[in-house]
């Protein structure tokens, strides 16, 4: 195919267009006016090509509030299954839990997230996992902004070469630092909740006013004037 004429109108289902429609509105400027979607996925493993999502959990955060019933939890029917990872998430291949097809789960998820900023611990993994699923179903990638709680947390630590920071901070590390109970660790929504609390406590430390600043703060500190 001629490489420069890829303006082919692709045929996407209606829910995708509805999702894209949301991005015509800019995000509110201030943090307190923004809804954040905190998410976590449970997968069969870490390989983007081979492994599959088993569950997506997400909740919405608006002005420091989490409305419990407005949370998102969907279990996905998958062919691929990895016995090793089952020890972690405890989702069995033949469990009796009600499950939906991958496409239906993605549809519900897109309806849920709209154009909100996505927050997660190592968020890129979750986003990539979802993007891979979208691709399998013939859909483009997610368009939302992302925030990674690990990068943000690192910024709350003292900026000094004296202190030897760890390279990685797991969700367990954060839960321990902020004394959040780790009861539902390794269920998608439970992890999303822990992430949400860690996110809130991190923002309180960083105190940014605007979403833009928050996104910028993920990167390493820039020295100089």
């Amino acid at each position: 195919m001629w490489p420069f004429s890829k303006k082919k109108q692709l045929e996407f289902p209606d829910f995708w267009w509805a999702y894209e429609e949301h991005f015509k509105h800019p995000l509110p400027e201030l943090i307190k006016d923004n809804t954040f979607v905190v998410l976590d996925t449970e997968t069969t493993g870490f390989n983007l090509a081979r492994d599959r999502m088993l569950c997506i959990g997400a909740l919405k955060l608006l002005d420091n509030n989490i409305v419990v019933k407005d949370s998102f939890e969907v279990y996905i029917e998958q062919e691929h299954y990895d016995v090793g990872s089952a020890e972690i998430h405890g989702i069995l291949k033949k469990s009796k839990r009600q499950r939906t097809s991958e496409l239906e789960a993605l549809k519900q998820f897109l309806v849920y997230i709209e154009n909100h900023v996505l927050v997660g611990h190592h968020v890129l993994f979750d986003v990539n996992m979802i993007n891979a699923a979208l691709k399998r179903n013939g859909l483009p990638k997610l368009k939302n902004e992302n925030l990674d709680t690990e990068s943000l947390y690192k910024r709350t630590l003292l900026i000094s070469s004296v202190v030897q920071k760890k390279d990685r901070y797991t969700l367990d590390d954060l839960a321990q630092k902020f004394s959040i109970s780790r009861k539902d660790r390794h269920t998608a929504l439970g992890d999303a909740f822990i992430t949400a609390i860690a996110f809130l406590r991190t923002i309180e430390k960083l105190k940014p006013k605007k979403v833009k600043d928050l996104i910028r703060k993920q990167g390493p500190l820039r020295f100089g004037l």
């Binding site: 989490i66 929504l189 439970g190």
Partner: peptide, 11 residues
Amino acid sequence: KNTISERVADF
């Protein structure tokens, strides 16, 4: 019910 509401109830 969902995982978070279970957590709330548990508390």
